[in-house]
Amino acid sequence: MLRFVIRRVALTLPTFVALMFVTFIAVRLVPGDPIEVRTGERGISPERLAQFRHELGLDRPVWQQFLDYANGLVHGDFGVSIVTKTPVLHEFLTLFPATLELSLCALLLAVVIGVPVGVLAAVKRGGVLDHAVMAVALTGYSMPIFWWGLLLIMLVSESWGLTPVSGRVDLINYYFEPVTGFMLIDSLLSDQEGAFWSAAQHLILPSIVLGTIPLAVIARMTRSSMLEVLSEDYVRTARAKGLSPLRVVGLHALRNALIPVVTVIGLQTGTLLAGAVLTEHIFAWPGVGKWLIESIARRDYPALQGGIMLISGIVIVVNLLVDLAYVAINPRIRHG
């Protein structure tokens, strides 16, 4: 088991190196640099421009900049944001709880609805429910996040007035210092009446928007995996014991069917974090995604590079954890 973990961790190192290289190059391929973006159309004298560039180290050869950056990363230094002058890591960590809270809620929604729905569709295969579920899932999977978010805001927030349009909490009525960074927890800790409900209400629409694609993927995967497992001999054995259908399907079949589903859930973390960038933008959610989009606009190289590295790192770590979870639920790997 320990050797398995060590091997898996070691395998992620080349990925990180490649990632560092690609983000560094890609960020610089975008036309314009931080100075040009900041000075805008008013222009600036060539001397001042050269001075700014020198201050930021942008006048040095690219390969030297890369080596400096790589050296910094190895020592855990993600650089300092050009715009806010605060360390990138600190900014990221301040904003990340918001993204994490949103992503977790979206994933929870996707799993809590997706798995049972997929199981039901498989058990009632070929029926009306099955067809309906799969049609909705396909629609959900094909839905552009931007359009879906705007549609929900128009309908639920504007027309029906059921949920707030944007933000994490009603800032006019509630204010509290971040403790954990998770609004749901902080609002409870603040002891302000209604704060938790306000935070929860703000989470509803973004979670639905962000959770839709993973929900569709999980439902479809659960269904097909379940269909395969339901025709297995050991399911027949379970029924031959006289167990209830709930136990046969919910324990004997589902336990086996979940193995590929867990993999898919892991792969969805990438989709979630990428989707979070768009979702946060639509709902003005003060998370990492919104921050990254703003950094692109400002050509804030250190913030962009650091942000992408950190997010990618999280995706890699989550996939590693999924591999380990896989070992936990599949005894055939555990005892290999």
Binding site: E232, D233, Y234, R236, T237, R255
Partner: peptide
């Protein structure tokens, strides 16, 4: 071999 549930 396939009649026993591999997960239990």
């Amino acid at each position: 071999m396939s009649s026993l549930n591999p997960c239990f």
